Simulated assay, not measured.
Amino acid sequence: MSGTVRGAHGRLSFASLGSGSKGNATLVSDGETHLLVDCGFTLRDTERRLARLGLHPRQLDALLVTHEHGDHVRGVGPLARRYGVPVHLTPGTWLSGRFGELPHRHWITPQARFAVKGLTIDPVTVPHDAREPVQFRILAGERCLGLLTDLGHPSAHVVEAFAGCDGLVLECNHDPRLLAEGPYPASLRRRVGGDWGHLANSQAAWLLQRLGLDRLQRIVCSHLSDQNNRPELALEALLPLLDGDESRLRVAAQDTGLAWQTLG
């Protein structure tokens, strides 16, 4: 186990196995309970990425699924079957038929709080082109982490639900100019840039401003498109809101993810 996640109960740590169109997975831990949110990598790749962060799959207490798109669920079934990890997902996500047998399946009801050992989870409905998508607020003691990726626009419901977090993993999927001039066909450009697709950097900045910055210790730009965005553009959009304080801002990369971050 990494020393970073052996903190006192009530502290909240998180890390990214990788984030982007080729695979997404986020670890959340209070030092005793370990959650994996989504698993968009092959089983072997997931094992390798977990080991890089000091965790073995048998230490996972649960796997939470946001929605059924392949870059979020590719490894869910294999990981659950190999290691007996309980999977929490909405009925709509399950009905996509992309999981195979899940030995320990638990339903998520959007807007209905539940707990996994020492961590409390609020699943929040978001606007995205999936069957029954949710994102999560995860709480340990007085600390709260918001995981907010894969949404087409920052709805009033999302603003209300994710206000007051101590940490935020926030989608910065694309730069509108790069999307418009990029290689995607017109239909895919409309999907990505539409109200049920993905957040542009400017939309992420708009949302962040309305969520409030006072409590936020760490903001992580996530789910960056390798075709339609660049890390410097995402940072450039958010940094003015922080008065140039780069210490609060990180980027979760596709290949290397993000090392453990602790909300103390």
Rank of each mutant, 00 (worst) to 15 (best):
D61T: 14
V251A: 07
L242N: 05
H9F: 09
L147Y: 03
G141H: 04
V65F: 05
T120Q: 14
G194H: 05
D226L: 14
R74L: 11
D122M: 09
C144Q: 10
A156D: 12
T149H: 00
G10H: 04
T33E: 06
G212F: 02
V116M: 04
A163K: 15
L213Y: 11
V169L: 02
G31N: 02
G100L: 08
W94L: 15
W196V: 12
G75I: 02
Q111C: 03
G84S: 00
G197Q: 08
V192W: 10
L233W: 07
V192C: 01
L50S: 12
G100T: 00
L89S: 03
L145K: 01
P127H: 13
N228V: 07
C172S: 11
G152C: 01
H88Y: 15
Q203Y: 04
P57S: 03
A204H: 05
G7H: 15
A15F: 07
T109V: 12
G97E: 02
V76M: 01
P123T: 07
W196E: 14
F114H: 09
L95R: 15
W196D: 14
C39H: 06
Q209H: 11
H72I: 08
R81W: 09
H223C: 09
P231F: 05
G92K: 02
V159S: 06
S225F: 00
L233T: 04
D129M: 15
H67K: 06
G54D: 09
A8M: 14
P127Y: 13
A156P: 08
L102D: 09
G7N: 13
V87W: 13
A200E: 08
W206M: 15
